[in-house]
Amino acid sequence: MAHVTINGQRYPLPGSPFIRLPLGLALVVGGIFGFLPVLGFWMVPLGLVILSVDFAPIRRQRRKLEVWWGRRRQRKKRAARPAE
């Protein structure tokens, strides 16, 4: 079984790329129609995360976003600490 790690948490994914690729593409395409009931714009990032397992360019962008988000959280955490 494949997995993707985001912010230190592991999320399981289907092990076969023959399942992951159609699933990721379906989520991205379905997310484009997010204005319709049941479908939502939340599907696009989820589909991209699933596709990032198999495609290096998407994986690099996901990793850059993850590093940026972690640094941002650290800065906010440091700024919220009371001065000693």
Rank of each mutant, 00 (worst) to 15 (best):
I32D: 06
I50G: 11
L21S: 07
G30K: 06
F35K: 06
E84R: 09
E66I: 11
V4Q: 00
V29P: 01
Q74T: 13
V53K: 12
P12W: 08
N7D: 15
M43E: 13
Q9A: 08
R71K: 12
A83C: 05
F33N: 05
E66R: 05
L27M: 11
A2D: 05
V28Y: 10
R63F: 15
A83E: 12
S52M: 08
G30A: 11
P82G: 14
G40D: 08
S52V: 00
A83H: 11
A2I: 11
P37F: 12
P22S: 01
R60I: 10
E66N: 03
K76Q: 14
K64W: 11
I58E: 04
G30N: 09
F41Y: 14
L13W: 06
R72V: 09
S52I: 03
G34Q: 02
L39C: 07
Q61G: 04
W68H: 04
F33R: 10
P57T: 03
S16Q: 13
V28L: 11
G15D: 15
R10L: 07
L39V: 01
I19E: 01
V67R: 14
S52C: 01
F41S: 05
W42T: 08
A83S: 09
A26C: 15
Q61L: 15
A56M: 12
F55D: 09
Q61A: 14
P14A: 14
L48P: 10
W69A: 14
R63G: 14
G24C: 03
F41R: 08
W69K: 13
L39W: 00
Q74S: 13
S16W: 12
L13F: 09
K76D: 13
F18N: 01
P22E: 08
E84N: 04
F55W: 03
I58K: 00
F55A: 06
P57C: 02
D54N: 03
A80F: 02
R20P: 07
